[in-house]
Structure formats: structure tokens, C-alpha cells
Simulated assay, not measured.
Amino acid sequence: MKILHCLSTREFAGTERHVAELTAFQARSHDVTLLLESQTADFRTGGDIAHHLAPAVRVVRADWRGYLGCMAGLVWCGSFDVVHTHLGQASIRAGALKKAGIAGKTPLIGTLHNAYHGRSYGAHDGLICIAQWQQDSLPTRWIGRNAVISNWTIPSRLDAVQRAVLRNTFRNVHHIPQDAFVICTMGRLVPEKRFDLLLQAWKQAGLSADTWLVLIGDGPERSCLEQGHLARDRVIFAGYRTDAPAVFAAFDGFVLPSSREPFGLVLLEAMAAGLPVCATAAGGALDILGNDPACLVQPDDVEALSIGLRRLRQQSAQVWDLSAYGLANQARKTEQFYKRFL
């Protein structure tokens, strides 16, 4: 099967990891092309999907014709069996080509990495939702033309010795006592992630002096969060890191305070590392922790989150059943979804 994936972003976050891992797996048995912007590095963090792509994936970057022009050339001449778009910018452009007849009868599939917008996906033939809330929000005309295929996590390849080295190195760099209980969170420092609420809850929880909080990530709110009155003792801003998800091995617990989380890949990755977790009951976290409601707290509720932090402090390492979140199984479901439209 010849598959064209289209992604128009300049950062490396959950969606970009999803595309890198899916294309790498598909390229084992299919002819896979990935269309990217001419520049894909995040100006703030340097994160770049280019560093995570498999050699077997043919990468095409937008040139003087622009992203839409390159997409048109690929679709017109590439004889692809499926065009698969990710996020709004690429999806709008592919839809325009579909409406103009340039894509012919080639099935156009989109993955919803965020909320559904008719302007982005109105011309698509099929939609893949990564969480149940997305499917529930679809207009009735999508009945029979969508499927829920969640994100996945790839088990860490670190052994016990490597985990111990990473843990000690991280703690030494940030001057955290070796016997401390360290809770971490990870994400872009933007309003909807509610790291401001987390810092309020951290203060209100009144956790013991041997408990530390580490925020991993960067973004426009970082300066305000660091310099504001909410940044209390035993709070570390570790900045953007390139070793996720392996870095979770350095911690004792994980908290996800977002007011809205389309899926929550970092939550899944923290669970794969064996961490106890606390997450807000919003978006994909409801799917992931549906059988573990004690790990969920109400979104945008500082009191609920502070209680969740106290509960998290009492937890120890856990073994989660993540058998439903394997890449091979989700890639197989994606291929089966393609075949419905061929």
C-alpha cells in the first residue's frame, strides 16, 4: 500500500511523536511518504520531528511551491492508495485538493488529534478519533465513517541499572535529595495545561518536606510561572527535554493538571514507566483511567487537585495493564480502517 501522511507543524509534541512512530511502523511493510513543512524545528525548544523519523520513511519538505503546492504535486503524480492528514493546517489543504478534484478517488483520512472542526475535515472520507469524547462530538453524518483508535506507548528499553543511573543523574543535576519523593508533570507551558493551578494545589496540599515537584517543558508561561508568587520551595523547572519518555524513570509519581487533554500521551508514558498517577477527568484521561477512577480529579479545581497530590504522595510504583495501547495493534486497526475506503 502507498500511504501519504501530511503534517504541517513546527514543533515536537504528542502529535508529532504519533506521526513519527506510526509512519516508522507502517514503513516496515508499506511504501510511506511524509510531507512536512520546509522548517519543522520549534524556535523555543529546538524540538523537531526530523530527529525521530525512520530511514525507511520517504520525507518530502515543502519547497518554493509552498505546502499546498507540494501536496498537490504529490497527490497528482504519486498514485497513493491513501492520503492521511494530521491536525488542521494539513487537513484543510488536503480537503481543498479533494474538493478541486485533484485527489481523484484517493481516500482522504484524517486523525483528530484535537477537537473536530468541519472546516478542517468536511471533505474527508473517514476520521480516526484518538479518544471517545471526540467520537461523541462528531456530527451524525460521520456515522459509519469513523473509528476510535487511541494513541499508544512503546515500552521503555531501560533496565534496572540504567533507570538507577538516570534517576541519580537527574537528582544530582537539580540538587534533589536522593531519598526525596519526586512528583513530575510534563507538557507545553501554556494556559490549558493549568500548571498555574498545579502550583496553587502544591502550595495548598502542604506535603512533607521530602516531597518535590518537577515541571518538564517550556512555553510562553514559563517566565510567569517561575517568577510569580506561585513558584514555591521544592519546585523545579527542568525545561524542555529530549529524552522523554525515558526520563519518567527518574520519578516517583506523575500528575496531569490540564483543563483539556485530547488524549494524554504523557499520562500513558508515565504509567508505562510504572508511576502512580493523578490526572484531571478531562478528555482522553477518562479513557485511559476509566477503570481507575480514584486516580482522577475534577478539572480546574484546586482543592480536588491538592487532595489528589496528597493521595499520590502515599502511592508506590505500580504495574498498569497497558495491553490495549500497543503500537502494533493500533497500526493494524489503522490499516483496517484504510481498507474500508479503498
Rank of each mutant, 00 (worst) to 15 (best):
T15P: 12
V19Y: 04
Q26E: 09
S29Y: 10
H30K: 13
D31F: 11
D31E: 15
S38F: 06
D42H: 04
F43P: 14
R44A: 13
T45C: 10
A50G: 11
A56K: 12
V57Y: 04
A62Q: 05
A62T: 06
A62V: 06
G66R: 10
G73Y: 06
G73F: 00
G73P: 02
W76Y: 13
S79H: 15
F80W: 08
H84A: 00
G101A: 07
I109Y: 07
R119M: 03
L127P: 01
V148K: 11
R167T: 12
F170L: 11
H174C: 00
V182Q: 08
C184N: 08
L189E: 05
V190R: 13
K203R: 15
S208H: 09
A209N: 13
W212H: 08
R222Q: 14
R222D: 01
S223G: 14
L225V: 03
E226V: 06
Y240T: 07
R241P: 02
D243Y: 06
F251G: 00
F254N: 01
V255K: 00
V255I: 09
R260N: 11
P262M: 05
P262K: 02
F263E: 04
E269H: 07
V277F: 04
A281Y: 01
D287W: 04
L309H: 07
Q314K: 14
A328C: 01
A328V: 07
A328R: 11
R332A: 14
R340F: 05
F341H: 07
